[in-house]
């Protein structure tokens, strides 16, 4: 079986609006103050919750709590991961701050797991440069609360949260054969053994029959524009200056069209039924990608009659 895989990175800095409760909590952290909220059953929640877990009622009764507390439970992290509070081994702990009735999850900085125990006393180690996020608590460390210099500023209303996740994306074996064909400048589709339709790119399963497409069918690099739009709008990551045409191209012998660019003529000249041929990039630039075809351009043949492609709209 041919297999192909490549990294897929999902990375984004999310911009989160906090609302009144979380905003006040984050503002407090920025000012080196920890505030909880009293629930309908009298429990003080730290971090504060916006709605009572039992009654679902909106909560508004604020309570300031201490910056030291007791470890309720913990787990050791021998190999810290990206984004975690410490870069050397540490413990995660649920810590109940003095004055709170619920525990907050954070890191405790100790040299090894032998220094951790449930019931131990820990205090906040504040970040040097607080910004209004949970990271304003750099971590916890063994000990009792100490006086801190409060800071002050504008209320915190937003927090930016970077997310970085790495994946390995794999192609199906059918897709891999097609991609390897593209590397050689060939357009390899496959025929579904049940409905006999030719798919390009081929599919792990024929979408109407649920069986893998099998027989390979090499297709020519020319076809018909079934339908299209003229892109007039600039957007992020765009590679050509508008206006240009994104069209569905039905290769001769294929039973399904794919989207590609139509260049080599004025955008206003492109029409449904126009015959086009592939404009390949220079061979030395070829990769396992349909982008080896830079675009399609008019072939000069007469337009295809509407009936020949009307079933592909």
């Amino acid at each position: 079986m041919t297999t192909l895989s490549a990294p897929l990175n999902v990375e984004f800095d999310y911009t989160r609006s906090l609302g009144p409760v979380l905003g006040r909590f984050m503002t407090g952290l920025r000012d080196r103050r920890i505030e909880g909220i009293r629930g309908d059953d009298g429990r003080v929640h730290v971090p504060p919750v916006e709605y009572d877990p039992v009654t679902a009622r909106k909560l508004t009764d604020w309570v300031e709590v201490a910056s030291a507390g007791t470890v309720q439970t913990w787990a050791w992290v021998p190999e810290p991961d990206e984004g975690q509070p410490l870069t050397h081994p540490f413990a995660w702990a649920l810590i109940k701050l003095d004055g709170a009735d619920t525990a907050m999850l954070h890191a405790v900085d100790v040299p090894g797991p032998e220094h951790m125990s449930t019931g131990m006393r820990v205090r906040v180690r504040w970040a040097a440069e607080p910004v209004g996020s949970i990271h304003d608590i750099a971590c916890f460390e063994p000990g009792e609360a100490v006086e801190t210099e409060p800071t002050q500023g504008e209320p915190v209303t937003m927090v930016t949260t970077p997310v970085r996740l790495g994946y390995t994306h794999s192609a199906s074996s059918e897709e891999a054969r097609y991609l390897n064909g593209l590397l050689e400048g060939r357009l390899l589709g496959q025929r579904c053994p049940v409905c006999q339709k030719v798919y390009i790119p081929p599919r792990g399963a024929c979408p109407t029959d649920g069986v893998p497409t099998v027989d390979e069918v090499e297709l020519p690099d020319r076809g018909t524009v079934t339908t299209f739009c003229i892109v007039n709008v600039p957007f992020l990551g765009q590679r050509i200056t508008p206006p240009y045409v994104a069209a569905y191209v039905l290769l001769d012998g294929a039973d399904i069209a794919f989207q590609h660019l139509i260049l080599g003529c004025d955008a206003s000249e492109v029409r449904m039924g126009m015959r086009v041929k592939a404009a390949w990039r220079p061979r030395e630039e070829w990769q396992r990608s349909l982008a080896n075809i830079d675009h399609f351009e008019p072939s000069g043949e007469p337009d295809a009659p509407f009936e020949t492609y009307s079933q592909h709209l």
């Binding site: 192909l4 897929l8 990551g237 765009q238 240009y244 994104a246 990608s289 709209l313």
Partner: peptide
């Protein structure tokens, strides 16, 4: 998010639906 092995079409948000609207009009 660019998916490996899939060529981006460079058509943008409405680029998917606009050709089908053209088909409808036709």
């Amino acid at each position: 998010i660019p998916t490996p092995f899939t060529m981006p079409v460079h058509a943008g948000a409405g680029g998917y639906f606009a050709p089908h609207v053209r088909s409808y009009i036709r």
